[in-house]
């Protein structure tokens, strides 16, 4: 089964449609993963280009968005392994994210987001997929080629590592 296309819709049209639908979502995830907006834009472009080249191989076993996120995560992993990213990857900074200067984020939100960005990739991935995107564990296991037990374990450890920022929010609510 190939990509579902509307009648008379070319692959290029389908690509445009995918970009319109999912660009912002992918950009958000990649910004957090790579801690840098410029790098995230590169990876998002690469994700859509890979999807475009492999449209015929999309089997429809998952949603289009799930498929794109899986490609994006693999692209992020490759990017982080690149010699260039290793060279420039030092401090995590909120200034590298696309914040809105007219409505800056709250301190609590900055603290939690930075804590997520400081996680090792294996924990950051499950945080983004489970807590941010809301995928069930079995879907995450399939996306990351892990067992469900491994995913559950990573989720548990990620929660422990984020405990300070999460409980800090809870205290504020009280």
């Amino acid at each position: 089964m190939g990509m579902i296309q509307a009648p008379n819709q070319t692959p290029a049209d389908r690509l445009d449609q995918m970009v319109q639908q999912y660009e912002k979502d992918l950009l958000r995830i990649c910004c957090i993963y790579l801690r840098d907006r410029t790098a995230a834009e590169d990876v998002v472009q690469e994700t859509f280009l890979k999807a475009f080249k492999n449209m015929d191989s999309f089997r429809g076993e998952s949603s289009e968005k799930t498929w794109l996120i899986r490609i994006a995560i693999n692209c992020c992993r490759d990017y982080r392994r690149s010699a260039w990213y290793r060279y420039i990857d030092f401090h995590v900074s909120i200034n590298q994210l696309p914040i809105l200067s007219s409505a800056p984020p709250s301190d609590d939100h900055i603290a939690l987001t930075m804590a997520i960005m400081k996680l090792k990739p294996k924990y950051m991935e499950v945080v983004l997929l489970y807590f941010y995107e809301g995928y069930p564990i079995k879907d995450i296991a399939r996306m990351l080629n892990l067992t469900e037990a491994a995913v559950s374990s990573r989720i548990h450890k990620a929660k422990q590592k984020l405990r300070a920022e999460l409980e800090g929010g809870e205290d504020d609510e009280n």
């Binding site: 319109q20 660009e23 958000r28 280009l49 696309p98 809105l100």
Partner: peptide
């Protein structure tokens, strides 16, 4: 509750994406 916290935090810290120009043209 954690989902809600994390979604709100990340969305708040990446709000600039919504107003940013699309990459659609370059991708095409």
């Amino acid at each position: 509750e954690i989902m809600q916290n994390i979604r709100t935090a990340i969305d708040d810290c990446t709000k600039g994406i919504d107003d940013a120009p699309s990459l659609q043209y370059q991708i095409a």
